[in-house]
Amino acid sequence: MQHMVQPKNRRRYAKALACALMLTPLLAAPARAQWPEDRVVRIVVPFAAGGATDFLGRALASELGKRLKQNVIVENRAGAGGSVGAQAVALSPADGYTLLLASGSMFTVNQYIYGKLPYSLDNFSLVGKVASGPMVVTVNAGLPVKNIRELIAYAQARPGKLNFSSAGVGSQTHMAGEAFSDAAGIKLVHVPYKGEGPAYSDLMAGVVEVAVANINAITPLLKGDRLRALAVTGKERSPLLPGVPTVAEAGVPGFEYTGWFALMAPAGTPQPIVDRLLADLKTAVEQPGMKRYFEEQGMSAAVKPPGPLKEEIVQESARWQALVRKKQITAN
Rank of each mutant, 00 (worst) to 15 (best):
I329F: 05
A88D: 08
I73G: 03
G51M: 00
N147W: 07
N110G: 11
L309K: 03
L126G: 04
V41N: 00
R149L: 12
A33T: 00
P198G: 11
L241V: 12
V208Y: 04
L99A: 06
A16E: 05
R32S: 05
V44N: 05
L121W: 10
L26F: 03
L230I: 03
D182Q: 11
L230T: 02
E236S: 13
S105W: 00
N9S: 13
A183K: 14
K327A: 07
L121S: 13
A18N: 02
V109F: 10
M290D: 02
N140S: 08
R325E: 12
K8T: 14
L68M: 15
V139I: 11
Q321K: 15
A153D: 12
D275R: 05
L26T: 01
R32I: 00
G234I: 01
A284K: 05
L91H: 12
V45T: 08
L309H: 05
R39V: 06
S120G: 13
A20G: 14
G104T: 08
A131P: 08
S317M: 06
P270W: 00
E150M: 08
Q315Y: 15
E295V: 15
P118H: 05
L60A: 06
V314M: 12
R276I: 03
V244P: 00
L126I: 12
A231F: 02
L227N: 02
G234V: 04
R319A: 14
K129C: 04
G57W: 06
F124P: 02
L91W: 11
A155N: 11
T283M: 07
K8C: 11
G104V: 03
T269G: 01
V137K: 01
K326G: 09
P198A: 11
V303T: 13
L26H: 00
D95V: 10
K291G: 14
V72A: 04
K116E: 14
S181L: 06
D202W: 07
P220M: 10
A20H: 08
S132H: 14
M4T: 15
G185Q: 05
L23V: 01
A20R: 09
P266A: 07
S83W: 05
Y193G: 01
A301F: 12
A331N: 11
D182I: 02
V274L: 05
G170V: 03
L227P: 02
V5A: 12
R237F: 02
V285F: 06
V139L: 07
Q34W: 14
R276A: 04
T246E: 03
W260I: 02
T330G: 12
W260F: 08
L64S: 03
Y97G: 10
K326R: 15
R58G: 04
G128L: 03
Q156P: 06
G51P: 01
W320F: 02
S103E: 09
N147Q: 13
K291M: 12
L126W: 13
K326A: 11
G133Q: 08
V232E: 02
Y200S: 11
E311R: 12
G298L: 04
R228K: 14
N123F: 04
D182S: 12
V109A: 08
N216S: 15
T283Q: 13
K327G: 06
